[in-house]
Design a protein around this nucleic acid. Structure first.
Lengths: 194, 194
DNA sequence: AAAAAAAGAATGAACGTTCATTTTCTATCT
DNA sequence: AGATAGAAAATGAACGTTCATTCTTTTTTT
């Protein structure tokens, strides 16, 4: 146990350091030496756990994305009505972005820059399927606007990333009231108006 | 005229090259030497027009942002109703993102990464004032939800950036139908429901 | 001919990665 | 159980490259 445990700790420390440093300076402005220092490890040690810098950031992305979607869907089940299911998932996502701010910021940066390579991005997208399935059902039931999933995502989910970045900059405080208003806007933008 | 003209041409060529290269590789992965080559200029010449790399990208950002907001508000005047004004501005912004894709992509990347320094970002934000004024009026008239401007922006404007990035990746084609649906979602998310 | 603009080559720093060596761990043998 | 040899993990220093920036020279303009 000892050996394996130690290794996993180091790997985790490296991933944590990568997230923090990339959040604050971006991928290319973050040297391996700094990541090593923050993880209390020699630069050379990084290469025992990861092939190279690109591999380190790809693996970090996939890991964080998995954590994100696991959290988002943890309390959801397919028996719920479309509206209830959406509210539940939306609020879990919002909660994740508030509580796991570092992780969420990292994902936002990855998704808005040419930092992650294509295969890893595709890998990350897969995990979103339950939400797409819910939307599919919503469209069939006439509850959700019959739009492309990209449009639905752009209006229902993506705005949270923008708000989170604004919050990180200190421009804006995302409290309970704002959160409820944001949810109402999200739902308004994709629901079918009666 | 000749001298000044020539200078402006070089400066423009440098800014254009910066936009294109940063779009494709990101700020730190774009060497000055490449920017110089694409602008048909010696690396040293860049330093006759800009203080350093950071200054080059800051000035590029401010210039593109100004072009963007000028375009957005070109046909707007404050006599319009809130709804008509919003639709007009929204559609001009959408048009800009479609027609001036390179410029719009560049702004999206700047706004989502720690690439631009704070004073330049603030400078860029100022130009958005007419839209904020319109929203203010809309709130007073009870037409626009009484929310923070950040929330309004997140739902009404920001989703377009996401869609544009998806389009650039080839995941999604933003045609007339999608555009109308997107506008309806944007308006639904911020208007007061009767 | 003097001044301004531009160029290419040179410089020094920083970076990702690798190498040679040391340290730590594990399993075997007495 | 304790000693020890061999393997695995970790390290700090070093390498080669790349890059932003500057210096010196050449070209262009006035």
């Amino acid at each position: 146990m000892a050996t394996l445990q130690k290794s996993i700790n180091k790997r985790n420390a490296l991933i944590k350091a990568t997230i923090e440093l990339v959040n604050n300076s971006g991928f290319h402005a973050t040297p391996m030496s700094k990541i090593a220092k923050m993880a209390n490890v020699s630069p050379a040690t990084i290469y025992l756990y990861f092939e190279n810098k690109q591999d380190l950031v790809n693996q970090t992305y996939i890991e964080v994305k998995a954590k994100y979607t696991t959290y988002a869907f943890a309390t959801y089940n397919t028996e719920m009505t479309v509206e209830a299911g959406f509210e539940l998932i939306w609020k879990r996502i919002a909660e994740f972005k508030l509580k796991e701010c570092e992780n969420a910021m990292f994902l936002a940066q990855c998704d808005n820059t040419p930092m992650i390579d294509e295969p890893s991005r595709q890998e990350g997208i897969k995990h979103l399927q339950p939400l797409l399935d819910l939307w599919e059902r919503g469209k069939k039931e006439g509850v959700i606007k019959p739009m492309s999933d990209y449009l639905l995502y752009a209006y229902a989910i993506n705005p949270m990333s923008f708000l989170m970045i604004a919050q990180k900059r200190g421009d804006f405080q995302l409290d309970e009231t704002h959160l409820e208003a944001a949810y109402q806007s999200a739902w308004s933008s994709i629901k079918v108006c009666k």
